[in-house]
């Protein structure tokens, strides 16, 4: 079972934060097919948030075919996002670490690195869309 949390200043609506956390857990293999998500009541009791927020997040996950509810029992993982792509994470991560080391040697501080990454990420995403 995973622990969900909320960031007050993330700018994302709470239900999207939950969706992303579950997706990330699926991507990283923390959640496997057959695993149970925390019940709505558990999430609500931990985070002090509106149950409808959790329901909405779970419904969205259900729509994208990642989880399915079993009435009276809970919500269970039915698909995973880690399959093929997960294998390639290792090498990519190595590349990124090497690039970060290089950026630091070039005298960039953390904020500059982040700004550069965000900027490039957006530019590449825009190209992808166009």
């Amino acid at each position: 079972m995973i622990e969900l949390h909320l960031e007050a200043r993330s700018g994302l609506p709470p239900y999207q934060q939950i969706v992303r956390q579950v997706q990330r857990a699926l991507r990283l293999g923390v959640l496997q097919v057959g695993d149970q998500l925390p019940t709505v009541k558990e999430v609500v009791e931990r985070l002090a948030i509106n149950p409808n927020t959790v329901l909405k997040a779970y419904k969205e996950l259900e729509h994208s075919g990642l989880v399915s509810p079993r009435p009276g029992i809970g919500t269970f993982v039915t698909a995973t996002l880690s399959d093929g792509s997960f294998a390639s994470h290792g090498p990519l991560r190595q590349d990124l670490l090497r690039w970060l080391a290089k950026a630091r040697r070039a005298g960039l501080d953390d904020e500059s690195i982040e700004a550069l990454f965000q900027d490039s990420f957006r530019a590449s995403a825009d190209q992808g869309v166009a």
């Binding site: 709505v40 009541k41 609500v44 009791e45 931990r46 002090a48 948030i49 509106n50 149950p51």
Partner: peptide, 14 residues
């Protein structure tokens, strides 16, 4: 405050 809202939300959920 947090504990109260947690209680309240779990009541709503239940």
């Amino acid at each position: 405050r947090r504990e109260f809202l947690q209680s309240l939300m779990s009541i709503v959920a239940e």
